[in-house]
């Protein structure tokens, strides 16, 4: 058989990945060491972009905000696990109910943002109306930091809970029924059952969710762009800061330095998540 054949099959896909993913990754690292504006010539900057970045208040604030977004991961996991445990064996039969629970996650983020911007509207929104019935004064859901970051987190939580609940149910369905039943007969308390039997068996699900959810949270952009467009940069996230520098100020060198930091963070998060899970095993 012709030894070149496998390479013909691989060529189109790997060419695209090489040109549009791997090469740009090398380029972004290279750009981060340049003074490179869209409008002017570029020259070597050494670590100039990074030292500027580490002195930029907006960088530290948006970084802090993005790390705060990651807090949504443990909350999301706890809420969806609690929901999954309390509805076990009920959901799988009704595909209509599953459709409703999946609806938030399949909906385009822009649509979700539009929806919640209306709900959170400070003058006419439904949430402030409901709060007024409880004689609570209007909350500045969209304009006041850090409340508006909290609104972004509420949106994220709402968008993910049904999806993660279904993931947990799938994981729970894999635990052999006999093990749980036998443990109950042995006089194990529900708490012991949860920590010694259910959680260890859910490890692959938990790991998958921790990695996916936290790396999505650190990259949060569209939610912020649509929900709280007008607020100052220091209320926003790291990718919003990257977008501003790269595509509104066209400072490609500086933007690339932000992108490199973002890459380091997503990489560190995935690695950390995997380490934490392995230590618990």
């Amino acid at each position: 058989m012709n030894r070149a054949i496998p390479y013909y099959f691989l060529l189109p896909a790997l060419l695209l990945l090489g040109v549009f993913v791997l090469y740009p990754m090398a380029e972004v690292v290279g750009f981060s060491f340049l003074h490179y504006s869209f409008f002017g010539p570029h020259e070597f900057a050494g670590l100039g972009n990074y030292s500027r970045l580490f002195q930029d208040g907006d960088f530290w604030r948006t970084l802090l905000n993005s790390l705060l977004c990651v807090l949504v991961t443990p909350i999301l996991m706890a809420v969806s696990l609690a929901l999954a445990l309390s509805v076990r064996h009920q959901v799988h039969r009704a595909s209509g109910v599953r459709l409703l629970l999946f609806l938030p996650v399949i909906t385009p983020v822009v649509v979700v943002g539009i929806m919640w911007r209306w709900i959170f509207n400070e003058d006419t929104g439904i949430i402030n109306y409901l709060l007024s019935l409880l004689t609570v004064r209007p909350v500045h859901w969209l304009t006041q930091y850090p409340v508006n970051l909290g609104s972004v987190l509420i949106l994220t939580l709402w968008r993910g809970f049904g999806y993660y609940m279904m993931l947990f149910l799938a994981g729970l369905a894999l635990i052999p029924k006999e093990i749980e039943e036998a443990s109950l007969l042995d006089g194990v308390t529900p708490w012991q059952q949860a920590t010694r039997i259910i959680l260890p068996n859910l490890k692959p699900t938990l790991l998958f969710m921790a990695v996916v959810s936290s790396s999505a949270a650190i990259k949060l952009f569209t939610e912020v762009y649509v929900l709280i467009p007008g607020v100052p940069m220091n209320n926003k996230t790291l990718v919003a800061f990257l977008y501003r520098q790269a595509f509104e100020r066209f400072d490609f060198g500086y933007g690339s330095a932000i992108a490199v930091v973002l890459f380091a963070l997503t990489f560190a998060l995935s690695a950390a998540n995997i380490r934490i899970m392995e230590d618990r095993a």
Binding site: F20, V21, L242, G255, S270
Partner: peptide, 21 residues
């Protein structure tokens, strides 16, 4: 491994050089 590396690179990290390209 090149495919795995591509999976590990978030879109947001490379949009800037991609746009230049």
């Amino acid at each position: 491994y090149a495919v795995i590396a591509a999976i590990l690179i978030p879109k947001e990290v490379i949009i800037l050089p991609l746009y230049a390209m």
